[in-house]
């Protein structure tokens, strides 16, 4: 093909780019990277800390919450077991995240590298989903036991009309929905911006394999 041969010839002509000396290159080795992997790493650490704090802090910060929780878990063994499982899950996510970050290698093929990065993002996504589910159940269980152990509240509840009950459920569902949508938008924004180009290029590579 003539045109491309012409291009090839021109392309391989001695470079018109500036030639850096060793003296120029040395300082470059010690500059900070601004790659998406590094940003993703910081985001995942921030997410782990944030969601762990969200789920753990009420227990340490509020004595009444602690008392209520102790009341719910009248059985100490169950309490210890639940705690062990939840901390176990946090450690499992930390381990998976660490492993996924370690697996990201710039010397892999383009497709493999993109997949490793997307896998890391997926792990953190599962961690957030796990925390949302836990928060949701904690809220439901909290309300249930709160009502059960609070005679005044349970009396009000028993006396409420169907319409009032319906309204109460609607408000609760509404609040939960707004909360979930805000979090979902927040993630869309953060990861959407960060991984837009990666996703586009990954899709392009996928398309080639169809």
């Amino acid at each position: 093909m003539d045109e491309l041969d012409l291009l090839k010839k021109d392309w391989n002509k001695p470079s018109q780019d500036k030639n850096l000396s060793a003296k120029d290159i040395y300082p470059m080795l010690h500059k900070k990277s601004s790659s998406i992997v590094k940003t993703l790493f910081y985001i995942s650490i921030a997410e782990l800390v944030f969601w762990t704090l969200i789920n753990v802090s009420p227990y340490f910060m509020s004595a009444s919450y602690r008392a209520k929780l102790d009341m719910v878990y009248t059985n100490q063994t169950v309490f210890t077991l639940v705690n062990m499982i939840s901390y176990g899950i946090i450690f499992l996510f930390v381990y998976l995240l660490f492993k996924a970050h370690k697996a990201i290698s710039v010397t892999d093929s383009a497709k493999k590298l993109m997949e490793s990065i997307l896998k890391t993002r997926k792990i953190i996504k599962y961690y957030v989903i796990y925390n949302l589910v836990v928060s949701f159940f904690a809220m439901v269980i909290g309300i249930y036991f709160g009502l059960k152990n609070n005679p005044e509240a349970s009396r009000k509840f028993a006396n409420a009309t169907d319409e009032q009950l319906l309204l109460m459920y609607a408000v609760m569902i509404g609040f939960t929905a707004v909360f979930v949508v805000i979090i979902w938008l927040f993630y869309k924004l953060i990861y959407g911006l960060l991984l837009k180009r990666l996703n586009r290029n990954y899709n392009e590579l996928q398309k080639l394999e169809l």
């Binding site: 491309l4 291009l7 090839k8 392309w11 391989n12 892999d108 093929s109 383009a110 497709k111 493999k112 180009r197 586009r200 290029n201 392009e204 590579l205 080639l208 394999e209």
Partner: peptide
């Protein structure tokens, strides 16, 4: 697009299809 640029770049650099496919992770 970015991927097509990579393909043409490797072609201009005289890389064979084996190396191109290995670099990009496609067949």
């Amino acid at each position: 697009n970015d991927i097509d640029k990579a393909l043409i770049f490797l072609y201009l650099e005289d890389k064979d299809y084996r190396e191109i496919s290995e670099t990009l992770g496609i067949s």
